[in-house]
Structures are given as structure tokens and as C-alpha cells.
Amino acid sequence: MTALGPAPAPAPPAGDPVPAPPLVELRGVRAAYGTIEVLHGVDLSLMPGEVLAVLGPNGAGKTTMLNVLAGLHPLSGGDVFVAGRRTNGASAADLARVGLCLVPEGRGIFPNLTVRENLRMAAHAGHDPRAVEEAAYERFPRLAQRRRQLAGTLSGGEQQMLALARGLATDPAVLVLDELSMGLAPLVVEELYGQVAELARRGVSILVVEQFARVVLGVADRAAIMLGGRVTDVGAPDEIESKLSAAYLGG
């Protein structure tokens, strides 16, 4: 692997408008757990202000891909570019500090801390903890009622709201969501995706991995299908929706 540097941009044909460079780009990304390779060359890009949904069955490598992007899992090949800079080997803490925020599968909240304490944990240097709390309560009024309650005693939906609110406390430029709907009732999922749509309207770039295709495709600008550690299709949500059953059932 060569030294770190900016992504080489191919020159556009003369006369065509110059497209905006992607905010996040994965090129031929490979990753493994021990000797078992689970990502076999993933190519994907997220444009500024876009909502990109990645769909696929269990074991397709979606979560691993997000972990690689967020600096939580090492690459065994390929490159990750964030804002045009190769970030292979960047730590998760550094990426989160600059504004690439991952809301992990299983929520990742601190169950033995209260809602307020969880929110305060998210307020890093330069963010006023009170402002973080107020913003979270404004976005999710249910959390305000539970502010002194242990996070582990919240319902699944409230825990996911807390995880999302904690992610948003860092003022992310890129929000990466992993299985937001996991283990939640459809009504709660719709409420959470309402918040995601609101964030998208505000221009936050969002990469969301999901199995609940119907809801996420309603919010996404583009969608991708991931199968067996590769991105097999990228396109408009309608186009991807029609290919989903074949992808899941192998038709």
C-alpha cells in the first residue's frame, strides 16, 4: 500500500458539468475475520446530502462494511476515502471527532447510565452538554420524560432513540446507521425513520444498512444490494425494490 494521499479524480469529459465528489467512497474494500474473508471487494460511494440504503440478507457483510468505514475493523485490501482523503487505518475516535458517526447495531448505549448521562457521554470537547441534552429532548420528547431513568430499563424503541440522539449530539456530517429497526415494532420503526427523513432534509449524508426494506426505501435517494460480501446492484429505490426478492431468495 502506498502513502496516504488524496483520491485521484478521473478527469470529466470536456463540456460536461463536473459532478460533486463523493463524501465517502469505498474502493475494492476487502476485510476478514481471521482467515475468513467476508468482504470481497466492495465498491460504494455516498454523495454529499444523500441517503444511501444498503440492503441484503444476513451474512452479506453489511455490518462489517460499516465497521470498516467507521474505523472499527481493519481492511485487508482496497481503500476507504472520506472527503477525498484515504483514511485506511484512521481510528474510530478520530473519524467520530471529525463528524463520521456510526449508530451501531444493538444500539450500543450504556445500560447502567441514565438517559442524561448517556447523552452527556456523547458531548465531546467543544459541545455544551446541556445544549446536547436540549437538542436530544427537542427531537425525541419521550427521552425528556425518561431523563433520570437507567438506559437499560428503556423500551427497545426508546433505546434506539437514545442511540440516535447520542449520535446526532456530535453534529455529524455523515451518519452511518446499522439496522435501526432491529427488534422494534413497525410503528416505532416508522417514527425513527421519520427522524432520519428529517435529518436528510437538513442535508446530513446518511448511509443506512437495513433489512426493513419498505420503510428505508421510502427515505433513500439511492439504494444498493449487498450479497456475499459484494455490492451487486446500485440504483434508484424503485429499481432496487424490484430486484430485492431475487436477491433475498436467490431467484
Binding site: A3, L75, R85, D94, G99, A173, G203, S205
Partner: peptide
Amino acid sequence: DNTERVERFKAEVAAMHLRDPA
């Protein structure tokens, strides 16, 4: 505001101290 945030993000990523994994 969003353009400003994206620009700030790009500047912060450019200023990150990265270690070459190689």
C-alpha cells in the same frame, strides 16, 4: 449551513493525522 458543515468536515478530514497502515 449544510454546505458549511460539509466544507468544515472536509477541512477537518484533511487536517487529520493519519498513520500509514502499511
